[in-house]
Computed example of a mutant assay.
Amino acid sequence: MAQRHLDPTNPLTGPAPTGDTLAGYLRAQATEFLRALRLHRETGPGAGGSDGSADAARALRRSARRISASLHTFQSLLDAEWSEAMRPELAWVSGTLAMEHAYTARLERLLTALHRLSGSTVPAPSPALDPAAGGRATVPRNPPAPAAERGNLTVGAAKAGALLDRQLTLARTRAHSTALQALGSSRFHAVADKVAVLASEVPLTAGAAATDLRPLAGAAEDRLRDAVTALPLVTAGNPYNAAALVHGLSPDTVPHPQDAPWHQVRLLLRLHRYAREAVRGELAGDPVAASRLLAAGQALNRHRDASEAAAAAAQAARTPRIAPATAYALGVLHADQRHEVEAARFAFQQAWQKETVSAS
């Protein structure tokens, strides 16, 4: 496909962004990481994590992702050995800290959907999470099921909810313990020490100070557009994908084959957005294009959330010796979340078409 790069006339005025711009961005993100770490230590983990501790963990993940993404996109401008050693460690930090929040959001999504489908009172939702910062998206609400179906579903909904509550609460507790152990480990302390050095000294290559960042950021955009081109966007334009539902209801526990390319696009979109931040500044450039990219990212976050929730419902349905009514309720819940997957794909298609038109 034709190569498309960031418009050199649109970013910040003045000289082209170079390695020095990248160094300033990395220093700022490293400083955010250290500030969040200090806040996390001051607030303490608490029994289930206080609000301040949760905010600090989210900020840690946010800065770790941005540093890691920059090391990937602009790797040719950074010391190769240092960069290759840092990236997996930052991914470990971000991934470990994300799991507790992921299980919490997944349980809320499934219980909310179960209440909606069975026609019972829906519990008050938690405050909206921030998909732009990697958080779990809030749960979209579909129209309730017909009365006859709700009557059959209600029989097993309570037990299905209790089963999901037990399984995901246990997983969340284990994730909380794992995160606490990780934050106290020598491995994490080594990462924090390296980030502290990064806050004052960025290991650029010899020619980085004179190298324009825009071609490297443009390459990240090209990889994203190539991956989107390979997606079945025609299928995503349909309201219902029967092949996705049939596969999900099978006893096969392998991850859904249709989901992987969408998850990959989500990661590439994140790399593209962070590259824009490094080159243009978070608030600079075209705000309309930034808003459309954000909408596309939110749709892909919902896609991930619904996909993982559907897998959790299917896994719960495989629990030995559960009642048929419970298994039925979990099957309906699984189908509902696969519908949400399709809705998220359609939302991404709409957002991406607007982004493509604005860029042409």
Rank of each mutant, 00 (worst) to 15 (best):
L168I: 09
F74Q: 01
G161E: 08
A91L: 07
A158K: 14
Q75G: 08
A91F: 07
G95H: 03
S70V: 02
A124H: 06
N152Q: 15
S63P: 06
S118G: 10
S63R: 04
E84W: 01
A85Q: 07
E108M: 03
A147V: 12
R136L: 07
S53A: 13
A59V: 06
A47V: 10
G48C: 06
P146L: 04
D165L: 15
V155E: 13
R58C: 06
L117I: 10
A124E: 14
S53W: 13
N152K: 15
G134D: 00
V155N: 04
L129W: 09
H101V: 03
R65W: 09
S50N: 07
S53H: 14
R58Y: 00
L129F: 01
W82D: 00
G161C: 08
A47H: 10
Y103D: 05
N142K: 14
L71G: 02
T96H: 01
T96K: 02
M99A: 15
A64D: 04
R87M: 03
E108R: 14
A157G: 12
P123R: 04
L90E: 00
A124V: 15
D165K: 14
E100H: 01
A64R: 01
A124S: 15
L71H: 05
M86Y: 00
E149F: 08
R106M: 13
T154Q: 15
D79W: 00
P125Y: 02
P127F: 02
F74V: 06
G135A: 03
A80P: 09
L129R: 15
S68H: 06
M86H: 00
L164E: 08
S83A: 10
P127Q: 07
G95K: 04
A137E: 01
A162S: 15
D55E: 15
P125I: 02
M86S: 01
G135W: 00
T112L: 15
S118D: 14
G95Y: 05
S76L: 11
V122P: 07
R116Q: 15
T121W: 00
A162M: 12
L164C: 11
V122R: 12
A56L: 08
R141P: 05
A85R: 04
A80N: 02
P144V: 11
A59I: 05
H101Y: 05
I67M: 05
D51Q: 12
A91V: 05
V93N: 00
A47F: 08
A160D: 09
A158S: 14
L107E: 13
L164M: 11
A59T: 13
P143T: 10
A57P: 02
L97G: 01
S120C: 04
A124R: 10
R109Q: 13
A162D: 15
G119R: 09
P144C: 06
V93I: 13
S53V: 01
T138W: 04
K159Y: 09
R106N: 09
G52M: 02
R61K: 07
L60Q: 02
G48L: 13
E100P: 01
T154S: 14
P143K: 07
K159W: 06
S126R: 10
D79A: 01
R87W: 03
P123I: 00
E84R: 03
L77M: 03
G119W: 10
A137W: 00
T73H: 04
A69L: 02
L163F: 06
D55R: 14
P143R: 10
A59W: 12
G134R: 00
L153E: 05
